[in-house]
């Protein structure tokens, strides 16, 4: 198990953003997280990577208890993430942004080695031509790719992707899906929050469903897409589930 989340709860004032959440992520898999807006998905990432400590419960990364560690310690341990609301370092160039990821990530590279990694990763995500541009000058789709590049440059063993497909056109989605598969094939475990159901169902080995901070279900895409509660709470339309399943070949 690369990641174990055990009975985690997080409240904001009276709001129960996460209530007694437990799951495990296996080495090398793609683990999908779905749920309607406000379900607590981003909060789940924030709790895993140390932005907020949970009020209850524990989180283990490769058997080591990381509950309550600051984000930079968790980053160095090998967990990288992207932000749903992109956070480019605006007045730094695209290459510098990605170099930061490589310098301070799992491998703590020197500046020179980090710049080499940055160029490799930028080529991989298709931003090679923008390396010298200020990050603030990128468009939304490019900023998404920058988020991914920065996280990858840290050479993480666990990658948390928060809605990297949102706002991309169909071609860009296809590119991104191929990129995510290839990252996994290089041995990186992935937890991805996604709204695009067909993408989650195609890509994920297992899917976890959240609603109003509560755990609804967990299982393979086949099981999840016919789960009555999922159909009711999330997919809404039973026929949609049928179509999604057919999409799974």
């Amino acid at each position: 198990m690369i990641l174990q989340v055990q009975n985690v709860s997080k409240r904001f004032g009276g709001l129960r953003a996460l209530e007694n959440i437990s799951f495990e992520v296996r080495e090398g898999e793609i683990f999908g997280v779905i749920g309607p807006n406000g379900a607590g998905k981003t909060t789940l990432f924030n709790v895993i990577n140390g932005v907020y400590p949970p009020q209850e419960g524990q989180i283990f990364f490769r058997g080591q208890n990381i509950t309550g560690l600051p984000p930079y310690r968790i980053a160095r341990a090998g967990i990288a993430r992207t932000h749903q609301i992109m956070r480019p370092l605006g007045e730094l160039t695209v290459r510098e942004n990605v170099t930061v990821g490589a310098c301070f990530g799992r491998e703590s590279l020197s500046l020179g080695a980090a710049a080499t990694v940055a160029d490799e990763v930028l080529t991989f995500v298709g931003l090679g031509g923008k390396a010298g541009v200020l990050a603030s000058k990128l468009n939304a789709a490019e900023k998404k790719r920058l988020e991914l590049a920065r996280a990858l440059a840290a050479r993480p063993s666990l990658l948390l992707l928060d809605e990297v497909l949102a706002g991309l056109n169909p071609n860009e989605v296809a590119d991104m899906l191929a990129a995510i598969r290839s990252i996994r094939d290089n041995g990186v475990t992935i937890v991805m929050i996604e709204h695009l159901m067909h993408a989650v169902m195609q890509l994920s080995d297992r899917v976890f469903v959240l609603d109003h901070g509560a755990q609804v279900s967990e299982g393979t895409p086949q099981v999840i897409s016919v789960h009555p509660k999922v159909v009711e709470a999330y997919l809404g339309d039973p026929k949609l589930a049928q179509r999604l399943l057919e999409g799974l070949e």
Partner: peptide
């Protein structure tokens, strides 16, 4: 540029 993002990237 962004202290919180920097921290997520591994900077103390």
């Amino acid at each position: 540029e962004d202290q919180d993002a920097a921290q997520v990237l591994g900077i103390d």
